[in-house]
Structures are given as C-alpha cells and as structure tokens.
Design a protein around this nucleic acid. Structure first.
Lengths: 138, 138
DNA sequence: GTCTATGCAAAGTTTTTGCACCTGG
DNA sequence: CCAGGTGCAAAAACTTTGCATAGAC
C-alpha cells in the first residue's frame, strides 16, 4: 500500500521517513490537486507545527523519487498529485475559471500524431487546456 | 497596419496611445514569445527610460483590448505574443527544456472532440504540451 | 552517534500598488 | 485643462536558503 511504498522509495534513495513527509504525502493523496498552501493546510491537520518550507522541500523530494507529480491547471501556482493518480485532461475556462476533468482518450489522436511525426512522448495532463466553457461562449 | 490598429483599439476603449505603449507593443511583435523582462529589454531600445511596471500595466491593457495574448511555455513566467500571431503548438521537453513548434493541425481531433462532447472551445496554444523529446527518451 | 530533516527567520524573486508628476487629446 | 499614464519606490506575494536543533536509523 501507499505508506509502504513511501517508506521503501525513500529508503532506496537514502531519504528518511519522517512524520512531516508522511503528512505531506497523505495531504497530496487526499487533495488530488493541491497547491503548496493547500497541502500545508491539509497536512497541518495531522501535524499542526508543520512549516511551509518543509512542504516545499518535501514536495521536491517526493517528486524526485517519483511518487508525486505536479501539473499547471491555471495561471497561478502548480498543483501536486500522486504519480499513480489516473490521468485526465483539465479544461480550464478562461472566463469563469471553472475546471472540467475529462478523459485523456480525447487526446489519443494528438498523442499518436506527435509521436509519429516528431517522436515526442506527450505527458498530456501536465498542463491544463485553456478555452471557453459552454456557458461562457454566449 | 499594426500601428493604426493599436491606436484605434486603444481609443475605442478610452485608452491613450503613448510612446511606451507603442514600444511595448512593438517589442511583443518583435520577440514573438517574450517574457516581461525580455519585453522590457527590447522596448528599452526604443525608450530607454521605460519601467518594468509600465510593461506589466501595458501588457494587461494590450491583452484586454485583444491585441496581445499570453501563453505558458514552461514552468516559469508566461510569454506574450500578438493575438493574430498564427497559432502553433509548443512541445516542451521536461528533460532538456527544448521547445518544438508544430502545427496546430495535429490537435484538430482533440479540439473537435472536446467541442462535440463538452461544448468546450479550446484555445489549444495557450499552454505548452509537456513531454519527452526524441533524444531524451533514451 | 551520525547525518538528514525541520522550524524559524532572513533573504531572494517576482509582481503589484500608491503617489506625485507628466502628457495625450 | 483634465483624465489617464508613467516612473519611482515601497509593499505584497511567493519561494528559497542558512543555521541551530531535533530526530531517524
């Protein structure tokens, strides 16, 4: 399960398992798409003295060992999610800022075309797709 | 031509045409994908006293009146380009940071699918597409 | 016991804001 | 002349870093 994976991966790379790391990891898992600040607040439920700089440092470590990844959903801060979190596209409305999650299947053609024509292996959910939602087009 | 369009659009919305605005607009046109800092440096060739905060304020105005748009090519600052600049997809390699420009045609299927299934009008070139380039996959 | 990780505070960056002066129309 | 625009400086927001101490192993 997750906790063991966390412990294992950390040890493999010479990192230690601390309560703060576990709290940050759990917060990422719980929030699905959290910013640094949101992850801090969530993780502080488990450890109220947790510091923002620890969140920054741990997200870096968790990303390095491949358990966590980040994506850019809007114009602001990146959001963090578990690496095994099933991928989906994020459609962000430029006007009302609503975020729609849709299946990555829609992008299969694009992914295949870019691979065939340019040898490029797309990480399709890293950036959101900007546009106008149905409501805001009127 | 561009200069007239700039003047017209500004006046239509009650804005004034200043040398600084023209310098910023020209810098955006010249750079194609410039950050605030890059636009400042380019615009200062025409007006050496131009201030960074003026660049921020003018890019906001130029974007509001629809002459300029911004895109997110990497994890850092956004870049600005003319609104009529022909769209192309940016493929950014996560590893070597190389940026490939490819035709938007590759995304036609995705754009059509998102419109048909979700009524979403995609602005496909607003965010870069992240992934691994041919070389970095080995 | 050793060496990494943490909390705190300070320093860096980047972007925004307030204000007196300047300038386009 | 007058409202909007600019430069400058200060503030705000966001992120990173240094250092003494705590804690994992």
């Amino acid at each position: 399960m997750n906790a063991d994976l966390l412990s294992e991966r950390l040890k493999d790379r010479g990192y230690r398992l601390t309560n703060q790391r576990r709290a940050v990891f759990d917060a990422v898992a719980h929030l699905e798409h959290g910013t640094h600040e949101e992850i801090l607040r969530q993780a502080q439920i488990a450890d109220s003295t947790l510091n923002l700089s620890t969140v920054y440092r741990n997200l870096e470590v968790l990303e390095e060992i491949g358990l966590v990844r980040h994506a850019h959903l809007g114009h602001g801060s990146p959001t963090y999610h578990l690496a095994d979190h099933h991928a989906h596209l994020h459609l962000v409305c430029s006007k009302c800022k609503e975020v729609l999650e849709v299946s990555v299947d829609a992008a299969d053609g694009l992914v295949a075309a870019l691979h065939a024509d340019h040898g490029f292996a797309v990480d399709i959910d890293h950036f959101a797709i900007q546009g106008l939602c149905k409501k805001c087009q009127n």
